[in-house]
Structures are given as C-alpha cells and as structure tokens.
C-alpha cells in the first residue's frame, strides 16, 4: 500500500510503500538524520519509525538558508 509524503519547504510530493523507515524516507527526499525531520500527523517521529497506511506524512528540511 502506498503512502503519500509531502516535502517541505520545496512542496514536492513522494509516494512510498507502507513499512518504510523514517530514516530511509529522509534519504529518499535527499536529506539525512541531521538535515531533516519526519512528521507523522504533525508530530515528529524517530528515525526507526515505520510509516503506516493512513499516516499523514511530511518530511521537513530543517536547515535554513541563512
């Protein structure tokens, strides 16, 4: 089952399989554990969280451009 992911701030959308780990999701979005955060239903999750069907997922790039 696919889960939709919104990438902030660039506005991209990704689709991933349920069960993927948050850390892998960050890598898919071109980030790592330091430069991005995964929010599920608006709350941050740790890198080993596995995305579930029905989760509202956002990947946020936390490094600002200065």
């Amino acid at each position: 089952m696919k889960v939709k992911v919104r990438v902030v701030p660039d506005g991209r959308h990704l689709e991933v399989e349920a069960g993927v780990k948050a850390l892998d999701l960050l890598k898919l979005a071109g980030m790592n554990s330091e430069s991005g955060v995964v929010l599920v239903n608006g709350r941050p999750v740790t890198e080993d969280y596995r995305i579930r069907e029905g989760d509202e997922v956002t990947v946020v790039r936390v490094l600002s451009g200065g």
Binding site: L63, G65, G66
Partner: peptide, 16 residues
C-alpha cells in the same frame, strides 16, 4: 535565499 551558496553547501557536508 541562494541554496547553492558556499554556506549552504557546507551545511550539507558538515551534516553528512
């Protein structure tokens, strides 16, 4: 913001 600036490229490297 210029994401290709040296500061922003260094930020990616230091975080890797």
């Amino acid at each position: 913001v210029d994401f290709s600036s040296m500061e922003n490229r260094l930020k990616v490297h230091i975080n890797s």
